[in-house]
Write a protein that binds this DNA or RNA. Structure first.
Lengths: 197, 197
DNA sequence: CTCATGAGTTACCGAAGGGTAACCGATCGT
DNA sequence: ACGATCGGTTACCCTTCGGTAACTCATGAG
């Protein structure tokens, strides 16, 4: 399985691609640099020509995948008419991404990264970005702390649903899920609003 | 810091207590058996007199903590009048538990366990139990698959909110959070119901 | 007093794995 | 044709860490 020679850039990208697979399947600690090298059809030192360390490679991966996810959602929500539509499109983009990128989802939210302080911050950054966006849509009379908590809760709502969908293995219709979830979220928020005012 | 001699049972329990701390703080792979032994004021072989392996110790921990969480929730919800009340009490019990057990929360949901297949199943078991309980409360006209997905979403809702609360470090009023969250969940579900029927 | 019980220690093994030094050989510009 | 470049390999080091064999020593029963 010896791969042909590649240019530095191509090899770097290939390593990243392969690493998503390996880390996604087995987690950070369950994957050795040898595993990745082998999967890339190459030997270990090659990895170190492109990345300073295992942690560095993983960081680069989280960054790339996380950025892509956020961009996907951002792109889908820019030209929405109102908050309601923005919410639904945001969820649709998110679930669509999950449906097409099981391994990436596992990488980000499967857990390996959540704990180890070093990477936890990076995952939090993504969560935070999503939550902040959602918090901006919450037109509800709540003190900021509660609003933040609810926003994170809604991010968790999407994450929890996705975990189940990905875990089940079957494919699913992201738009349909998004409709139900955003319906739930939106109506839920209105109810909280009514009770509070 | 040499501890006095303890009976086998007491030592075993102390190890479990100490291990929650260590694993909760640094994760499964970030914690060595030596770390735990040292924190317990004892040497490594003592750990192996009580647990077959590191994995075994961790399993026992997840089991104990998970069972306690589920029991707490179960106890709080048994004598509820209707679904609505059951939901609110369930969330209140959950958030109360989180408020008092930051490290346990991190242990279960901080992520270390989610990935590694061996422990992932155990965490899933807990999630599943919670989701099943919630699914039973969802009196909504949805096909079972969607109902399951929503139930997992609601579990994620609580998890996401908790993650933010625990991460912020400040203390919070679990009952207040529970009121808002269950208000959101309940009204959200009703809305989904209305649209679907 | 003494001896069995069992909690606890010291000192070690072996494997895994991150990381590196030194070398190789295909390719391409001149 | 030739030499510099650079993608790639072999072989290795060294630390960490899970796990264990063999010993020590306090304690309580008789």
């Amino acid at each position: 399985m010896s791969s042909p020679r590649l240019t530095a850039d191509a090899r770097r990208q290939q390593i990243l691609d392969v690493a998503i697979d390996e880390f996604g399947r087995s987690g950070y600690f369950g994957t050795s640099m040898n595993d990745i090298a082998e999967a890339a059809g190459v030997t270990k030192p090659v990895l170190y020509q492109h990345f300073d360390s295992k942690a560095d490679l993983y960081r680069a991966l989280l960054d790339e995948v996380g950025t892509r996810l956020l961009e996907t959602i951002a792109k889908a929500t820019t030209d929405a008419a109102d908050g309601r539509e923005r919410t639904e499109r945001g969820f649709a983009a998110y679930f669509g991404w999950v449906a097409d990128h099981h391994l990436e989802f596992t990488l980000l939210f499967g857990g390996s990264a959540r704990q180890e302080g070093e990477f936890a911050a990076q995952i939090r950054r993504i969560n935070e970005a999503a939550a902040t966006a959602i918090a901006g849509l919450i037109d509800v009379d709540l003190d900021p702390a509660h609003r933040e908590t609810i926003a994170h809760g809604l991010v968790g709502l999407a994450e929890g649903a996705s975990r189940r969908l990905v875990g089940a293995g079957e494919s699913f219709d992201p738009d349909e899920i998004a409709r139900v979830v955003s319906q739930l979220a939106w109506a839920g928020l209105r109810a909280v609003d009514r009770e509070r005012r």
